[in-house]
């Protein structure tokens, strides 16, 4: 059982790390600011979600698990809102970059 859970953690966390990697590559490779914003807001939120998912089997209590999920939800909210905010700021300046 514990081996299966460890395997689950490893797969989820490795997948999370992969999405962080993809997000960074997108941030470096994408040609303009608005497309880079997509790379940022989509890939790393999913990356953190997968890391949290992978850590869930390792927590001591249900409480700690709920707290991890709350942390992810807050990051998701912040990420969605700041992507829109930055997106509009970029649009307002006429996409000069």
């Amino acid at each position: 059982m514990s081996v299966a859970l460890d395997l689950f953690s490893i797969v989820a966390i490795a997948a999370g790390a992969f999405f962080f990697f993809a997000g960074s590559v997108g941030l470096l490779r994408f040609p303009d600011s608005l497309t880079r914003l997509h790379a940022l807001s989509k890939a790393d939120n999913l990356g953190l979600g997968l890391v949290v998912l992978g850590l869930l089997p390792r927590v001591a209590s249900l409480l700690d698990a709920l707290k991890l999920v709350a942390i992810w939800a807050l990051v998701l909210l912040s990420g969605a809102a700041s992507a829109q905010l930055i997106g509009r700021a970029l649009r307002r300046r006429g996409g000069d970059e």
Partner: peptide
Amino acid sequence: SVVAGFDVARRALGRKLDL
């Protein structure tokens, strides 16, 4: 959001940027 993550990863990591 899972599909979105894969979508960004595919576009970012492809040999030619698919944008």
